[in-house]
């Protein structure tokens, strides 16, 4: 399955938007945290898991989804939220904990919920699979269109729920796709040290569903694999498992010393940064020239800058609002 030219440009634009957002968050996050790094300080306190390098997974999948389709993401959710069309202003405001944020600042960066585009995420490893399967079940029971996609890291494929959810989705033939973003690391633990199989897509055969592997963080490879899987799900043929070989260009979270990485790994990954690679591909295909690229990048950056200004200019809710919305 090949993307149309419009889809290609859409994917590139989303990747550029997401990356610029992460780069800006990285800078803003460090405000107030130097010279002594203290997670509680600055305009964006708490843990921060950046998605730099993993953009192909988000855009290649979300290119096939509409607002009505469901996505459940992880503790590293920004690229997926951007690609799913989560309201950027409200998302950034949530990351800043502001009143205008998706949940008024109650959730924070690991707990982004945008019902308008059926997006949610969770900070507990492996917990995207159950809710995605359940949303798929709901669509099936209600006879409503739509598929569900669960994103997870390769580390999450060793959680019990991974195996339970795959079996459940297969035995009930649910319209759901499970997408593993294999960035080779679960915090400091390498995939090969924690996982009995070199590739998780082979685990699909244990649950009688197709397992697909996408090598080399390839945007259009993801697009093709996801396209087939999502079409299959829409057609009532049940779930698919996809594992994407991607790269985490940042630390596990901000403040990570990354001493566990082998010498030279980071530089190697950076030289294969998927965004310049895809840009080159589009230039060579004649879909983009330097001027068009500059314009596209400029627009994407301005969208992010506007969202950041919106967040910065917003107020916090009054503290007592903490007591609200526990129940509806």
């Amino acid at each position: 399955m090949q993307p149309t030219n419009d889809q290609r440009l859409w994917m590139y634009r989303q990747m550029v938007t997401s990356r610029h957002l992460e780069e800006r968050i990285e800078t803003l996050y460090m405000e107030g945290k130097t010279p002594v790094f203290n997670m509680a300080k600055g305009p964006i306190p708490g843990e921060m898991h950046l998605s730099n390098g993993q953009e192909p997974c988000a855009v290649g999948v979300c290119a096939h989804l509409n607002a009505e389709d469901i996505v459940v993401a992880t503790h590293r959710p920004h690229h997926i939220a951007v690609a799913k069309g989560v309201d950027l202003n409200a998302m950034v405001a949530e990351i800043f904990g502001k009143a205008t944020g998706l949940s008024g600042g109650r959730g924070g960066h690991m707990h982004l919920f945008d019902a308008a585009v059926n997006f949610s995420c969770s900070g507990i490893i492996g917990e995207s699979l159950g809710p995605a399967a359940g949303a798929a079940l709901s669509r099936k029971m209600q006879g409503k269109p739509g598929v569900a996609v669960a994103f997870l890291g390769e580390g999450a494929a060793n959680q019990g729920v991974f195996h339970e959810a795959l079996n459940l989705a297969a035995v009930w033939k649910l319209p759901v796709v499970f997408v593993i973003e294999d960035n080779a690391w679960g915090i400091s633990v390498a995939k090969q040290a924690s996982t009995a199989v070199p590739r998780n897509d082979v685990r699909a055969s244990g649950y009688n569903m197709p397992g697909v592997h996408v090598a080399d963080n390839d945007v259009e490879g993801v697009f093709a694999a996801a396209g087939t899987a999502i079409a299959r799900a829409r057609d009532g043929q049940g779930p698919t498992l996809i594992e994407i070989e991607t790269s985490r260009l940042a630390g596990h979270f901000m403040g990570d010393g990354e001493d566990y990485r082998p010498e030279g790994e980071k530089a190697g990954l950076q030289s294969r940064d998927p965004i310049p690679r895809y840009r080159q591909q589009l230039l060579e295909a004649g879909l983009l020239d330097e001027a068009a690229d500059t314009r596209l990048v400029g627009e994407a950056h301005e969208r992010v800058e506007a969202a950041i200004r919106f967040a910065q200019e917003s107020d916090f809710l009054p503290p007592e609002a903490a007591l609200e919305t526990v129940f509806v």
Binding site: A40, P45, G46, G97, K98, G104, G105, R106, G107, G108, H109, H111, F316, L317, P319, E320, A321, A322, L323, V326
Partner: peptide, 16 residues
């Protein structure tokens, strides 16, 4: 701690 999930925003969390 009040009987609420812990909010992210520092203003709300510190208040609670």
């Amino acid at each position: 701690y009040p009987d609420i999930p812990i909010p992210f925003a520092p203003t709300m969390e510190q208040w609670a």
